[in-house]
Design a protein around this nucleic acid. Structure first.
Lengths: 293, 293
DNA sequence: GGCACGCTAAACGTCTGACACTTGTCGAGC
DNA sequence: GCTCGACAAGTGTCAGACGTTTAGCGTGCC
């Protein structure tokens, strides 16, 4: 830490690209390449766009550039790193897709360090989970178990901490009409479970629980579940909401737990349908051939 | 659904740029453009590289291309989308940095759909948390609370489920010498807490708990904590490990919980030091000026 | 016959330079 | 004083060229 005895040879050194003896690709402070010579399949040289991206990322993460601050223009970066603008742009694209920077056009445009945004994190994690689920790594069962840990605890905390406004939000979410068709049910209805997670006042609960719920939701076809079952679910939500409103932590937790256990059945039923269908599809696809040329 | 009376001029319209009729480029099933005219501050046209990236991402996520499968070459993609190769490359860079594809050089090179990799997810989440912590959104306290929920539960599950091999790993991690200087303490020592999380057999615990631990670790300067305190920590780990080995779920959970409560003190002490230092640094920086030209 | 060497080709990696598009700013004109 | 248009700074996109990496194959020597 603290060490910047290094003057500030930040930008230019790592890249040097075209000329001279490539600077040996700086030691790369471990973290990934731990095994000394284990891997045969080393990557010879990191492409320039990767080096540029890594350098910029590290500057941002290190706090050398604060949120909202503007990076040098692409032209300037390209000069500073000694690479072409295309290369710089590829690096910037990488940072953009990690939500580290945002880019605006026009005069006063440029790339700006993005403000940290929990929503994006939740989305990203959700999408990552979506990919992971249905691999042997991650089973539906694992998600259900995680949820069974998180949400009852969240309900308890919500009951202990929620202020009047938050309680209103929870109530509203519990009583939101389960609109038969409306796709954009508007914010207040942003799902009962999400609202409870947020009512803990601890963002970690939202960030851990929300992606799980999101993935589980995609596993549930609307039509796998009968209308009567939805009604039972809604009733459960209302009971939990009232426990939270009344500050009955224990009851809120217990009710949430049993609610989740009820839901588990639905998910497992849906899952078995799903795998059956998937297998059918795989068989079908094996029949034809590589489509994408 | 079906709000888009807009035909489907997604890719081609904004892109068409120079020449004639690009191949209309497959319908691309909506998914993003929802709000009809609600938002005033709409973004006029998404850049082509974003559209290409989104389309490819959606194809991958939808499963149209399976892990390991090869995407068309950049030249082919550029023809298919009716954009230049640079544009395609910017799109690919975005996907790469989301770990959705990997790119190889040489004959037989190309972009391949990446296999889902939990390790990457953990790293990404960790880095996202690192950015978020120290914002008003996320407090150290929140991380500690989350950990206090996750890890005792993990210890319990580990005690209930761990097989002989896993128990060995946990024991090894607990007894790994706390190397005074060695930075790469090698894998078995990959941290006791991580090992316990993995011993649950539920990847979700690792994916939720590991990033939290990682971030917390970075908050702890080695020298904030006295040697004697580390010894106590190690002793605690050994006790927990033995509980897990013995299958004593309840004891494992309780011991882990009290261990974490002990640690909390350390973290809070470190945090207060840290903020003091940070404030000093900020004052210092306000003194100087913008460095990057 | 077998092995080493070098050539070839397919893809990615990078560069150059140009032009189009966006958008805030500022000045001219009413 | 206000409106409108030109300007400028920056990003977005394109086209084409050349370098680099690497698997595969053919040739020639031993």
């Amino acid at each position: 830490m603290t060490p910047p005895p290094t003057p500030e040879p930040r930008l230019s050194d790592a890249v040097a690209a075209s000329e001279g003896p490539p600077p040996a690709e700086k030691a790369a402070p471990a973290k990934r390449g731990s095994a000394p010579s284990a891997r045969l399949r080393v990557q010879r040289v990191r492409p320039a766009y990767r080096q540029v991206a890594d350098e910029l990322r590290s500057q941002i993460m290190r706090g050398a550039l604060g949120p909202g601050e503007r990076l040098p223009s692409e032209a300037e970066l390209s000069r500073a790193f000694g690479v072409s603008r295309s290369t710089v742009r590829e690096a910037l694209r990488a940072l953009t897709s990690q939500h580290l920077i945002e880019t605006l056009r026009g005069v006063q445009g440029g790339s700006f360090v993005a403000a940290p945004d929990p929503t994006r994190v939740v989305e990203d994690v959700g999408s990552a989970l979506g990919v992971l689920v249905a691999t042997p790594y991650l089973q539906l069962e694992d998600l259900l178990e995680a949820r069974l840990l998180l949400e009852p605890a969240a309900a308890r905390l919500a009951a202990q901490r929620a202020d009047a406004e938050t309680v209103d939000a929870v109530r509203a979410a519990a009583n939101a009409p389960r609109d038969p068709q409306d796709p954009s049910g508007f914010v207040p209805h942003l799902d009962f479970h999400t609202t409870v997670l947020m009512a803990t006042g601890n963002l970690m609960f939202t960030m851990m629980g929300q992606p799980v719920s999101d993935v589980l939701r995609t596993q549930l076809d609307r039509d796998t579940v009968a209308r009567r079952e939805w009604d039972e679910v809604d009733e459960c939500h209302r009971v939990i909401a009232e426990h939270i409103a009344a500050g009955e932590a224990e009851a809120a937790e217990d009710t949430m737990r049993s609610h989740l256990l009820d839901l588990r059945g639905l998910y497992e039923r849906a899952a078995s349908w799903r795998t059956a269908r998937t297998e059918a599809r795989v068989r079908a696809r094996d029949g034809e051939n590589g489509d994408r040329t």
